[in-house]
Each structure stands twice: as structure tokens, then as C-alpha cells.
Design a protein around this nucleic acid. Structure first.
Length: 452
DNA sequence: GGCGTTACGGTTGAA
DNA sequence: TGTTCAACCGTAACG
């Protein structure tokens, strides 16, 4: 059995048997805890011992999974799908399987649905190690996502690629020059203070002293004449705080979903009035943010399974996710439709490997859709093991329903998670203990006791 | 056994 | 158009 994964224009074919075998090889129970064989090696050689490298997802013509011999070779850098050549290159595209049996795409973020699920389970009081096993995501990743969420309130990955917007805009350079001309003996730190005082920059985009010094040295130099850079490139109406919408990147209050709902649908400018947090660059989107948008989308019927061809299937193309898109769409109120589609489309089978068929039927997404990459492995993220979900409760992700949480439910459940939450709120002191009542009804999921 | 940290190979997109 | 660079990613392993 196979399924096709899509990553942008790349097609990823993944053998489900490979994933299943990778999981089964580490214990029939599915959970790593008991049967997992930890691949242990000295740190110096750990890269060469990566199971993911040894067990790439390969697909032969006959449908049987096999490991490409060259995948485990000593050559630096495992060949990527793009690098494969030959008559069967089109067939031998693959993702990777981690030690837990989960499928991931190296270099690419986990799907939002998984990220959301991680946060959700953590807030249910499930320990990160259990989350890791259940979702088949490495514990480092779980830890990372939770840490990020606790820090920023965002479950989304940071902006990948691109460059940070320059803080030394022509306007800033102009002001620096003015300051220097007005007071040739001014220090860089004084210029910095004046940039702040005059509102040319704020604390998030003010150039560093070293940058100012560099500007003074390189761009302003003798102070005699404005450089061609400033003269020719300065826009006629440079905003005083060109990157404020970036640097004061806010995330909405979980208790005010209204703004989120009406937030940053593509083309709809985001609303202000959020609390800026001192994080300079990466994007952030709160869970409630996403859910708010989801609710909005649900209300508008946009989630009725439409493909939304108008939106890029690439997560980085989502405004607010992609660094590039920040200026065009603040997206401060959450994900746009593509992000929602990512969650919606990322279906997971609660019954895991035993329900591959059902999963596949629910995963009829175009291969060109990147989220299809995760839509398939999504099932792999779920432990096929017996105790999850508990038999007495509804599954975490009913087949066909996907991992996408119902916006209203999770929004309510997440509402307690205020951005300014304290560390004490991060995790229950006793993982197996009671979760807040608001959470205990989330998805109707009973809070499982600690498995250890 | 759980978890924070980090090296590593990979992807991405602006310059 | 192709390359470089610096951001990010998740995994695996260490401690």
C-alpha cells in the first residue's frame, strides 16, 4: 500500500509498509517506551547511525518497500528526492521515518495539526514523553514546540528562508546622518537613543550600536554628501516605523477571538490592538488565533473541503508564516486559509496503522499539496498501540475528521492559556493528575494517567 | 526514564 | 539564472 505525498512541486512517495515496519521493528506495542531500541552510538558517529538515514522511505515499482542501499552510505548528505536520477528517479522519492515510526520531512516543519496536537495534549496534562510517543514525534521536537508555545503562544514554525528585514532602512540612515551632521561628536549609542526617542525606530528595529557605527563608517563616511544609496533609493514616503508590524508582532489575546476571526484573511489587513511581545523576528500565531480563524472559516463555509486553489499550498506562502509575506499581510490574527487547510487536510487515523485503509480514503488530497506530505505520515504519527485513544472515549482524531480540532472546542480549551501565562501554568505538576475542567472535556478525551 | 540541549543534515527564500 | 547566505526545520544523541 502506498500513498503519495506532495511537497510543493515535489512528489513524495512513501511506503506505508516502510513506516509500519519501522514502527513494528521497535516493538509490537507501538509505543517506544517498552520495545523501542534506542539507536545509541557515540556522538561522534551518531549522524552516521541515524535510523532515518538507514531507513528512508523508498518505493519500488512493485509497491514493495525497500531501503535504498545508497541511503546509508557514508557520503555526506543523503540524496534527496531531487537528487535521485535514473530511470526510476520518479519512483524513488521518499520521506523519512524517525525512530518512533513517525514520518517526517527533513528540513520541513511538522504540520500545524501535529503541532497543535502536541500543545493540546500537553495542556491536557500529558507528558511530553508520552506526546512524543503518541504522535511519533521526537521528544526534542515536542520539547521545542512546547517551549516555543509557552514562550510565544504560537504553535507555528518560524519563518523559513529569506532574510530579515533590514533595520538600516534609508530613513534610518538619513536620520543617522542628520544626527551626525548636527553633532559630529555624537556617539553611536547616542544616535541609537535618539532614533528611539524620535520614534524613527522602536526597540525592536533600532539598529545596534555596531550597526550604527558601520553606517557611520560606510554609508555616511565623511558626512559631506549623501551617498548615492540614500539619494537614489530612499523612498519618497518612508514610514517612520516600517517594520513595526513585524517587530511588534503580536499575538491575540485568547479571550478575544473576535479579532481573530476577522483577522488576516488573505487580503484583509490585520487589526492592531494586540500586545506586542519582545520577540524580534519570527512569526507567531496563537492556538486560539488559529482556531479563531478556523471558526471564521467554518462560518464562511470555507472549510467545506474546498481546495482553495487561490492559496498556496505551501505553508511558507501563508502570510504570517512566511517572512516574506509579513509586510503584505500582517496576519497578526492568525492563519489564513491555507494554514487552516493544513490542519484540516492533515488527517490522522486514530487507529493508526491498523486503519491505513480508512486513512487513505480520507486522504485523497492532491499530491501537489504540500500538506499531503503530512497527511499521509499523519497516521504514522499516531501510535497504533492499543491504549490510545482510550477505548472508553472518543478517539483523538476520528478517521476522516483529521487531527484538526474543532475550533470552538479547542478555542475554549485553550482560552485559559494566556500569553502571559506563568511558568506554573505550563505543565501540571503531576502529569497524570487532573487537568483543568475546561480541558477535561476537550474532544471528550479523558485525561489519561501517566503511562509510566 | 524524562527532558533540556545541541550537532547535524536538510529546506527555504532573499540578496 | 545560478549562487550564497542565513534563517528555519526535526531528528538523534548526549548529559
Amino acid at each position: 500500500m502506498k500513498f503519495t505525498l506532495g511537497l510543493g512541486s515535489r512528489a513524495w512517495r512513501v511506503s506505508w509498509e516502510r513506516a509500519a515496519a519501522a514502527a513494528a521493528g521497535r516493538g509490537a506495542g507501538g509505543a517506544l517506551g517498552g520495545g523501542a531500541q534506542r539507536v545509541s552510538s557515540p556522538r561522534s558517529g551518531r549522524r552516521g547511525s541515524r535510523l532515518a538515514r538507514a531507513l528512508p522511505l523508498c518505493l519500488s515499482r512493485g509497491g514493495g518497500a525497500r531501503a535504498l542501499p545508497d541511503c546509508a552510505g557514508p557520503s555526506p548528505g543523503r540524496p534527496s528526492a531531487r537528487q535521485l536520477a535514473g530511470p526510476r528517479a520518479m519512483e524513488q522519492t521518499y520521506g523519512e521515518v524517525n525512530q518512533l515510526g513517525g514520518v517526517f520531512v527533513n528540513g520541513r516543519p511538522l504540520p500545524n495539526a501535529i503541532r497543535l496536537r502536541i500543545v493540546e495534549l500537553a495542556q491536557l496534562g500529558i507528558r511530553p514523553c508520552d506526546i512524543s510517543r503518541q504522535l511519533r514525534v521526537s521528544h526534542g521536537c515536542v520539547s521545542k514546540i512546547l517551549a516555543r508555545y509557552n514562550e510565544t503562544g504560537s504553535i507555528l514554525p518560524g519563518a523559513i528562508g529569506g532574510s530579515k528585514p533590514r533595520v538600516t532602512t534609508p530613513n534610518v540612515v538619513k536620520h543617522i546622518r542628520d544626527y551626525k551632521q548636527g553633532d559630529p561628536g555624537i556617539f553611536a549609542w547616542e544616535i541609537r537613543d535618539r532614533l528611539l526617542a524620535d520614534g524613527v525606530c522602536d526597540k525592536y528595529n533600532v539598529p545596534s550600536v555596531s550597526s550604527i557605527s558601520r553606517i557611520l563608517r560606510n554609508k555616511i563616511g565623511s558626512l559631506a554628501q549623501p551617498g548615492p544609496y540614500e539619494a537614489s533609493k530612499q523612498p519618497p514616503s518612508q514610514p517612520a516605523l516600517p517594520y513595526n508590524h513585524i517587530y511588534q508582532y503580536p499575538y491575540p489575546s485568547p479571550v478575544s477571538p473576535t479579532g481573530a476571526k476577522m483577522g488576516s484573511h488573505p487580503g484583509v489587513p490585520g487589526t492592531a490592538g494586540h500586545v506586542g511581545i519582545p520577540r524580534s523576528w519570527p512569526s507567531a500565531h496563537s492556538v486560539s488565533n488559529i482556531l479563531g480563524i478556523r471558526t471564521f472559516m467554518e462560518q464562511t463555509g470555507a472549510l467545506a473541503g474546498s481546495e482553495g486553489a487561490a492559496y498556496s499550498p505551501k505553508m511558507e506562502d501563508w502570510p504570517g508564516v512566511n517572512r516574506t509575506a509579513f509586510p503584505a499581510s500582517p496576519a497578526v490574527n492568525g492563519l489564513e486559509k491555507p494554514a487552516l487547510e493544513a490542519d484540516i487536510k492533515y488527517t490522522q487515523s486514530a487507529s493508526g496503522l491498523s486503519a491505513v485503509g480508512g486513512f487513505l480514503s480520507a486522504c485523497a488530497y492532491p499530491a501537489s499539496n504540500q500538506h499531503g506530505v503530512y497527511s499521509a505520515p499523519g497516521g504514522g504519527y499516531l501510535t497504533p498501540g492499543p491504549p490510545w485513544p482510550p477505548a472508553q472515549g472518543p478517539p483523538l482524531a476520528p478517521p476522516g475528521a483529521g487531527v484538526a480540532v474543532h475550533g470552538g472546542e479547542l478555542a475554549a480549551a485553550m482560552a485559559f492559556k494566556h500569553p502571559s501565562r506563568e511558568a506554573a501554568d505550563r505543565k501540571p505538576s503531576s502529569p497524570g493528575g487532573k487537568a483543568p475542567d475546561a480541558l477535561s472535556s476537550l474532544h471528550g478525551l479523558p485525561i489519561p494517567a501517566s503511562t509510566s
